[in-house]
Lab assay of single mutants.
Amino acid sequence: MGMPNRKYADGEVVMGRWPGSVLYYEVQVTSYDDASHLYTVKYKDGTELALKESDIRLQS
């Protein structure tokens, strides 16, 4: 078993793309699913969504 190939840690605050949009919002990573390679993130309004790594970026 190798290390999970994840870029962002639980609790890390990053920018997540809103689905169907080009806009990124501040989100907190809450979990990562090794099987689906999706991150569960929480937006400031409390919305929780699963995002692909390509829809997440570090805060500038």
Rank of each mutant, 00 (worst) to 15 (best):
H37C: 12
V27E: 00
T40C: 09
A35H: 12
G16P: 00
E26H: 07
T47N: 06
T47A: 06
Y25W: 07
V13I: 15
L49Y: 14
V22E: 14
V29N: 00
K42F: 07
E48H: 11
Y39N: 01
V41N: 00
T47G: 04
L49M: 11
R17P: 06
P4Q: 09
N5E: 13
M1I: 13
G2M: 07
V13C: 09
Y32A: 00
A9V: 08
I56W: 01
W18Q: 08
Q28G: 02
L51W: 03
D55K: 01
K7A: 08
V29C: 01
E53P: 06
S60C: 12
I56A: 01
S31V: 03
E26Q: 11
K7Q: 09
G2I: 11
A9I: 06
D10A: 05
K52T: 12
K42I: 13
L38K: 08
L58I: 13
T40V: 09
D55I: 01
V14S: 01
G46Y: 04
E12W: 06
L51Q: 02
S21W: 03
L23Q: 12
E26C: 09
L38N: 06
S21Y: 04
N5M: 10
R17N: 04
K42S: 08
Q28N: 06
G11P: 01
A9K: 13
D10W: 03
I56Q: 01
S21D: 07
G46Q: 05
H37D: 11
E48W: 07
Y8T: 00
T30V: 15
R17I: 07
N5I: 15
G20K: 05
G46S: 06
L58K: 15
E26Y: 09
T40F: 10
V14W: 01
G2A: 10
Y8R: 00
G11N: 06
D34H: 11
S21P: 02
K52Y: 12
V27I: 05
G16Q: 02
K7I: 10
S36E: 09
I56P: 02
D10R: 03
R57Q: 11
K42A: 07
G16K: 01
E26I: 12
E26M: 10
S54F: 07
D34G: 10
P19L: 04
M3T: 15
V27N: 00
Y25H: 10
V27P: 00
G16Y: 07
Y24D: 03
V14E: 00
V22H: 14
S54H: 11
V29Q: 00
M3L: 13
T47V: 08
L23H: 13
V41I: 03
Y25D: 06
G20H: 07
M1A: 15
V22R: 12
Q59S: 13
M15W: 15
L23M: 12
Q59F: 14
G2Y: 05
V13W: 15
Y43C: 14
Q28E: 13
R57T: 11
Y8G: 01
Q28T: 15
W18D: 03
L23R: 10
M15S: 06
T40A: 06
E53C: 03
M3E: 14
D33M: 03
Y32D: 00
G46F: 04
Y24H: 04
T40G: 05
V22N: 15
E48N: 07
R6V: 03
G16D: 01
V27M: 14
V29Y: 00
D33P: 01
Y25S: 07
V14D: 01
Y25V: 14
Y32P: 00
Y39A: 00
S36P: 01
S54N: 10
Q59V: 15
D34F: 12
L49T: 07
V29P: 01
P4H: 10
Y8L: 02
V41Y: 01
Y8I: 03
D34I: 12
T30H: 08
P19E: 05
Y32G: 00
L23N: 12
W18H: 07
G11E: 03
S21L: 05
Y25A: 07
G16I: 15
R17A: 04
G2V: 12
L51F: 02
P19M: 04
E53H: 06
R6Y: 03
W18Y: 09
Y24K: 01
G2L: 10
W18N: 04
G2C: 07
V29E: 00
A35M: 11
V29T: 01
R57L: 11
Y32C: 01
S54K: 09
A35E: 14
G2T: 11
V29S: 00
W18R: 10
L23V: 13
D55P: 00
D55R: 01
R57A: 09
E53K: 02
Q59T: 14
S54V: 10
S60H: 13
V29H: 00
I56L: 12
L49H: 12
A50W: 15
Y32S: 00
D45L: 02
D33F: 02
M3F: 12
S31M: 07
L38Y: 10
V22P: 12
E48A: 07
D33G: 02
Y39R: 00
K7L: 13
R17M: 07
Y43W: 11
I56S: 00
E53I: 04
T40M: 12
V29I: 14
K52C: 10
G2E: 14
H37I: 03
P4M: 07
S54D: 13
G46N: 06
G11C: 07
R17V: 05
S54E: 15
G46E: 05
Y39C: 01
E48C: 10
R17F: 03
V41D: 00
V22K: 14
S21T: 15
T30N: 06
Y39S: 00
A9S: 10
G20P: 10
E48S: 11
P4I: 10
K42T: 10
Y24Q: 02
N5W: 08
G46K: 04
G2W: 10
D33I: 04
I56Y: 00
S21G: 11
K52L: 12
A9F: 11
L38T: 13
Y43R: 11
D33A: 03
A50H: 15
D33R: 02
A50L: 15
K42Y: 08
R57N: 07
A35N: 13
Y25T: 08
K44R: 11
A35L: 12
R17Q: 06
L38F: 10
D34K: 08
M1L: 13
V13A: 06
Y25R: 09
V22I: 13
Q28H: 08
E53N: 04
D10I: 13
E48I: 15
Q28I: 15
K42C: 09
K7S: 05
L58A: 15
V13L: 12
L49F: 15
V13K: 09
V14C: 05
